[in-house]
């Protein structure tokens, strides 16, 4: 049992060392005090304001702080559910197909719990008057356009064919990134898509769906 859990060992020992540390300077980078513009223990403190906000070390605050712990918990719950419901075929050797999912799921739940704990600690410190760090906002419109374009592309790929849906994808993403020269964008999109289709079908023998154009030609 001990050996099987070895992958997690560095983490486990890190946890214990962390909690052994007295609260004011908790050992985890998650808990670095918000106001100190806190650089990670191993990142160099730079005077540059842009570099000071490193998303990998900034603590999570506000309501969105619970999104990621929730996601981790969801993964963990699904893995544990799988471990309990996977049916091992008869005569399979001792460590069955559910053992490793069980371990992974349990560790995921453990990590989620730890994240919740860190979040609570950060929230308490902010309530006590520490300044909440400003997180960079998300520019939602371009992200939404790209995801929507991808979804439309996937939906139309087989009925419409690669040439048109590929061009649509290229144009949609370019638009999201601020391309507004309509004619040039359309020409570039269509020629990229066509080049890919020709190059791959002729050169590499990969068949991309022809779609409606197949019916016309």
């Amino acid at each position: 049992m001990t050996n099987r859990q070895n992958p997690a060992q560095p983490d486990d020992s890190a946890e214990t060392a962390e909690t052994a540390e007295p609260p004011p300077t908790a050992g985890d980078a998650d808990a670095t005090e918000p106001p100190a513009a806190a650089p990670a223990p191993d990142a160099d403190p730079t005077p540059d304001a842009e570099a000071a906000h490193d998303p990998e070390t900034a603590p999570w605050t506000g309501r969105t702080a619970w999104v990621f712990p929730g996601l981790v918990a969801l993964f963990g719950a699904v893995a544990v559910w799988g471990a309990l419901t996977i049916e091992a075929p008869p005569h399979s050797p001792p460590p069955g197909p559910g053992v490793v999912p069980g371990i992974v799921g349990a560790l995921l739940l453990l990590v989620a719990a730890r994240m919740v704990f860190v979040n609570l600690r950060v929230a308490r410190r902010i309530r006590e008057g520490a300044q909440a760090p400003g997180a960079p906002g998300v520019d939602w419109p371009p992200v939404g356009i790209i995801v929507l374009t991808l979804a439309v592309h996937v939906a139309l790929l087989e009925p419409l064919g690669w040439l048109l849906s590929g061009a649509l994808l290229f144009w949609g993403v370019a638009y999201a990134f601020g391309a507004r020269t309509w004619v040039r964008d359309a020409v570039v999109s269509l020629s990229m898509s066509a080049a890919v289709q020709v190059g791959f079908s002729l050169g590499l023998g990969l068949n991309l769906p022809g779609g409606v154009l197949e019916l016309v030609l």
Binding site: A8, P10, D11, D28, A29, D30, E56, L107
Partner: peptide, 11 residues
């Protein structure tokens, strides 16, 4: 390859 939090790396 993890430069920041160990916890997030493990997650």
């Amino acid at each position: 390859v993890v430069s920041g939090s160990v916890l997030r790396g493990v997650a």
